[in-house]
């Protein structure tokens, strides 16, 4: 049943974090992590995330993050142990390290489910926790099946694999009795990847075209030795860097919009209206600020990026959000969560 969009109420998401406030949390996190030789990092992670969640408001209520740092630390230690055993055996007993590697690949679907579940179970809105179904069958299909297809087709199937990842993450997520669902189809992801590829090819054609244009103008032999050649080289470098930033902004914004404009939660819908150029400006100025303060502006950069993203996302509600009922709470372990993080599987809502 297609919900009637006109009858829905739009709630813009608000973000109230500030760079100044977050700087204090961030720097104390780093200091305590150093002083405790890394042990505090689990507490740091919770405080970081809780700060961002507590400052994200939907319809007058903030989100909350409830993970236990000890659970995260345990998972982190297990992940670190697996990694150390793997690196050690890689030198001394390659056969064993291959078995460990195969084991890591095979447990990936399980780890992904655990990681997503841990994050969602520990995310609450109005004191009701989100949830994530333990759908290992689909997880195997996506994170083993489609991953191998993507590799075997030399990336031709990658956009579809990427789409299945996102779909898996959303279709198994729920808030109380309502399930999330991603209605976008693989074709739209292909279109997005092709556009990105097209823009990239066009950029390099124009770049090299103009570069050789200059080259012929001053005589090819001068390039590289002569100042005009050197200047052209510097300009080319700058343009390529700017282009990389642009493409990151382009991809993040378009994927985000595509996903959130096609997500439903029960009868509710979402809207994402981020734009590429403002995001590019944000990324670019973030980069300059971070580089010139040797990292001290990272908190400011994170806060303003989050603010832009969240302020351009809204929820279209079909009915008020009061009627969600808490499910039975299950004990969670953080193992999957931290394995997910140690091997950098970026997942999230």
């Amino acid at each position: 049943m297609e919900p009637n969009l006109a009858a829905m109420r739009e709630h813009r998401i608000e973000f109230t974090g500030t760079g100044k406030e977050y700087f204090g949390i961030w720097i104390v996190n780093i200091l305590l992590t150093i002083l405790t030789l890394g042990v505090y990092s689990a507490w740091a992670k919770v405080r970081n995330r809780k700060y961002f969640y507590n400052n994200t408001w939907l319809d007058g209520s903030p989100f909350d993050y409830l993970a236990s740092p000890v659970a995260i630390l345990k998972g982190w230690l297990i992940a670190a142990a697996v990694f150390i055993v793997y690196t050690l055996t890689a030198d001394f007993a390659p056969a064993i390290s291959l078995i460990i590697l195969a084991f890591i690949i095979l447990v990936t679907p399980w780890v992904v489910v655990r990681a997503m579940r841990f994050n969602l179970i520990n995310t609450a809105y109005r004191n009701v926790r989100f949830s994530f179904r333990k759908n290992y069958q689909d997880s195997n299909k996506v994170f083993l099946g489609w991953m191998f297809v993507s590799m075997l087709t030399l990336g031709m199937a990658f956009p579809y694999y990427y789409y299945r990842q996102k779909k898996f993450a959303l279709d198994n997520a729920s808030f109380s009795q309502d399930c999330f669902s991603l209605d976008a189809i693989g074709r739209e992801f292909y279109l997005l990847f092709f556009k990105a590829l097209g823009v990239t090819v066009l950029f390099f054609i124009v770049l090299f075209g103009s570069f050789f244009g200059i080259g012929f103008g001053v005589g090819l032999s001068d390039i590289g030795s002569d100042t005009i050649g050197a200047t052209a080289g510097v300009i080319t470098n700058i343009l390529v860097y700017l282009f990389i930033i642009f493409m990151v902004a382009y991809f993040n914004v378009r994927v985000n919009n595509l996903i959130w404009n096609n997500v439903s939660l029960g009868q509710h819908r979402f809207r994402s209206v981020m734009r590429v150029w403002p995001m590019f400006i944000i990324y670019f100025t973030n980069l300059l600020a971070i580089v010139f303060t040797l990292g001290l502006m990272i908190p400011w950069a994170k806060v303003r990026t989050a603010r832009y993203r969240l302020h351009h996302t809204s929820m279209l509600t079909a009915h008020n959000l009061d009627a969600y009922v808490t499910e039975r709470m299950q004990e969670q372990n953080a193992l999957g969560d931290q394995l997910g993080e140690a091997f950098d599987i970026e997942i999230g809502l």
């Binding site: 780093i30 040797l294 990292g295 990272i298």
Partner: peptide
């Protein structure tokens, strides 16, 4: 180390930690 210290920074900022 720089990546660890600056926390779970996004891809853009790890790009920035290349300079130090």
């Amino acid at each position: 180390l720089l990546a660890l210290m600056s926390g779970d920074i996004a891809s853009m900022s790890s790009f920035a930690s290349a300079l130090p």
